[in-house]
Design a protein around this nucleic acid. Sequence first.
DNA 1: CCCATGATTCAACGATCATTGAAATAGTCG
DNA 2: CGACTATTTCAATGATCGTTGAATCATGGG
Lengths: 127, 127
Amino acid sequence: MSGAADAIKPEVMKQLFHPEIEDVVPADVFAALGDPIRLGILVSLADCDEVDKARCGAFTELASPSLLSYHFAKLREAGITRSRAEGTVRFLSIRREEFNRRFPGLLDSVIETARRDPSVPRIKIDV
Amino acid sequence: MSGAADAIKPEVMKQLFHPEIEDVVPADVFAALGDPIRLGILVSLADCDEVDKARCGAFTELASPSLLSYHFAKLREAGITRSRAEGTVRFLSIRREEFNRRFPGLLDSVIETARRDPSVPRIKIDV
DNA sequence: CCCATGATTCAACGATCATTGAAATAGTCG
DNA sequence: CGACTATTTCAATGATCGTTGAATCATGGG
């Protein structure tokens, strides 16, 4: 097409749903944490050296792409993580500040608990 | 029956299963916490004035007896609570010390989080 | 324009979940 | 014993879960 002002950045991939942090409710948070793969995603994210630089594709040791997508959605819809698109890649990060404001201290205990436990799988994310 | 040494206390009601605290795993704990009724039971227990004096029957505002029994079992099997029988009554309590040893700091954050949130139902337990 | 790549969506599956109401069990007390 | 109370168990329901594999979508590069 040949319009004049199509200066829109092409990187506007379909937006995934993120709840307002005020709408997030404890029971849903804990339900989202109630799966070893999702806890694995969380601690791996928490231990990632550079924040907001973890590609979704870095988690393939934990599950198949399609299953990962399912678990990413669970964490995202529970207000725990954020998914950001950049070109053909998607980056995953923890909604630290917001979440800490909503549920002070909770995330740290959860991550510490999951990090300490051998039943939680984890990967090294090379950014 | 007329044996000589039947000095056995009659309060040996069928024992309910409690996992060893070492066998408890984070994902199962969070799954158990992922329900508003169970969070309600937990904060109500935590706010009970006299520890280990909360009758199961005190929770009937939260759900029907049979549903309560189901949720009690979930909390118990996740290592969070203990059920103790005394005559025809059962008492429910939080496995504070053990649980804190296994997952330091977690229970307090969870209870604080649930206590602060209006989506979690709660009752006043009169012991 | 077509192809490769990264990721989500869809359809299907068996498993578990939350809930209900009725039945069983355990203990107490007349 | 027999009625009564407190609680669990059972059977049944529809809903959601975790998983798989195939299909789809979006983007970037030849």
